[in-house]
């Protein structure tokens, strides 16, 4: 009898597909879709009041960026934390899978859904507000900012899920909302350690902050968050 062993990347791809399938069959996907429509009400309210202006576009993007504090914790943090807290990760470790593939597989499987939510929301807001509020290039920058911001926020959520699995969702939401968002809004260099600063700057609302610093900041946060998550996963008994 011959046995085949999955390579690390094959295992990652398999776990990504599994996470995607689980998410598609669970409640979390529907909740994510419903939440992604909430920020569009902002644009609808101003359109209904006939008070459309470029400021409203900024407001709509900022409102949409609040999704980054909620959706990565529901999708990424809960998926990784459930595996650790329910001890089902032990079944995965009993197979010849590298542990990092669990973190990366879930991350790669769920992040596309997490990215889709704010992009759908901001596209609807753009359609509602119209060209009086923003141009297509504004929309492109907003989409890029929200997508990269979601990736960084998901890495933070993955890190928190491995550090405190029992309070993963609460911890990730509180971190992103009470620490990341306020610090990111500060007019201090300290804001480079936050995902919200990078997302806002790439989206075109970072004031005088440079695009390069925002991109580097987002890359470092994503890599750092995933590195800590993988290291923690390696050490879990």
């Amino acid at each position: 009898m011959t046995t085949t062993t999955l390579t690390g990347w094959q295992a990652t791809a398999a776990l990504a597909r599994l996470s995607l399938k689980r998410a598609a069959r669970g409640k979390a996907l529907w909740v994510t879709m419903a939440l992604s429509l909430v920020p569009t009400l902002y644009a609808i309210a101003f359109r209904a009041a006939d008070r459309v202006s470029p400021d409203r576009w900024e407001g709509a993007v900022m409102m949409t960026s609040l999704l980054l504090t909620v959706i990565p914790p529901i999708l990424v943090a809960s998926s990784i934390a459930d595996e650790i807290d329910d001890k089902t990760s032990a079944y995965l470790w009993s197979r010849a899978l590298p542990r990092w593939s669990i973190v990366l597989g879930k991350f790669l499987g769920l992040v596309p859904i997490a990215i889709a939510a704010p992009i759908v929301a901001v596209a609807i807001s753009f359609a509602v507000l119209g060209s009086a509020a923003a141009s297509v290039s504004d929309l492109e920058r907003a989409v890029a900012g929200l997508a990269l911001g979601t990736i960084a926020a998901s890495a933070i959520a993955a890190m928190i899920a491995t550090v405190m699995p029992r309070f993963a969702v609460a911890g990730a939401v509180c971190w992103l909302l009470l620490i990341d968002a306020p610090v990111g809004a500060l007019d201090l260099n300290l804001h480079v350690i936050t995902a919200s600063f990078g997302a806002r700057t790439v989206a075109g609302f970072g004031g005088e902050a440079s695009l390069a610093s925002a991109l580097i900041s987002l890359a470092v946060i994503t890599a750092g968050g995933l590195a800590i998550a993988i290291r923690r996963m390696d050490r879990i008994e």
Binding site: K27, V31, L41, M63, V70
Partner: peptide
């Protein structure tokens, strides 16, 4: 459901109430 409940409460507290403030202002 715990996870969903936390997310919905956070979304209501963060986004829902901000939207209500905007609607109230308008």
């Amino acid at each position: 459901k715990r996870t969903i409940s936390l997310a919905v409460w956070a979304a209501y507290y963060v986004m829902g109430t901000s939207l209500l403030s905007v609607v109230g202002m308008l």
